[in-house]
Amino acid sequence: MKKLLFAAAFVASPVIADCPAPEDHSMELEGLFDAARAATNDRAGREISGKMWQVWLRAPNEAAQEVLNNGLKRRDSYDFAGALKEFDRLASYCPTYAEGFNQRAYIHFLREDYAKALVDLDKALMLSPTHVPAQSGRALTLMNLGRIDEARAQLLEALKNNPWLSERFLLADGGPLALPGKDI
């Protein structure tokens, strides 16, 4: 009976069918990047940043969206182990969906496993080179690994598409990613 119940639960799992390729949102994102570059204040920049997040958080299908949403809920309630399981499922089910790797990287980052975070961030950026959250997350990860020059370069790359990232302040005079030779 236990085997039958396990088999039934596995079949009902939302990740049995193949995950479709993620939609190409590059034109939509390019418009949002242009809008962010043109924004004249922090409030407008944050609003556009939120719209960018809405694009990245659009999973390829309902099953993937359900797994992503479950992982986000677990993350938001500080159930990092549970969130990691969900994002593992998402990355396995949708290996071409960058956000699955970005979210899993964030959990690794929160757990201070920077080496694993970097692997997932590199995968996310391989899939989606202009994924600004993965770019800024990679900058923070590199900074925590003491790779300051790489972190600075990565953050500058992220800021090209969204100059309103809160991480921009890391580049300010006296900040951990400030240009060398500038003192407080």
Rank of each mutant, 00 (worst) to 15 (best):
D120A: 03
A117T: 06
G100E: 01
I107C: 05
L90C: 02
D88P: 05
I107H: 04
P95D: 10
Y114G: 02
D122Q: 13
A124H: 03
E99G: 08
R111E: 15
S92C: 10
Q103E: 15
D122C: 09
A98S: 13
D122I: 07
E112H: 14
D88H: 09
R104F: 02
Y106S: 14
C94S: 06
V119H: 03
L110M: 14
L90S: 02
A105N: 05
D88R: 07
D113G: 08
F101Y: 15
L118R: 07
Q103S: 14
D120L: 02
D88S: 13
K116L: 15
A115S: 14
Y93E: 04
Y97K: 04
L118M: 12
E112D: 14
A98P: 03
Y114H: 11
R104V: 03
A124C: 10
A117N: 04
E112A: 14
D120Y: 02
D122F: 08
A105C: 09
R111H: 12
I107E: 03
G100I: 05
V119I: 13
Y97W: 11
A98W: 00
R89V: 09
D113L: 10
A91T: 15
Y97C: 04
V119N: 03
F101I: 07
N102E: 11
S92K: 12
S92I: 10
Y106A: 13
C94P: 05
A115P: 08
P95R: 10
I107F: 05
K116Q: 15
I107V: 15
N102A: 15
D122V: 08
E112Q: 15
V119E: 09
F101H: 06
N102Y: 13
A117P: 00
F109R: 04
A117M: 06
K116S: 15
A98V: 06
H108R: 08
D122H: 11
L110G: 06
L110D: 08
A124F: 05
G100V: 01
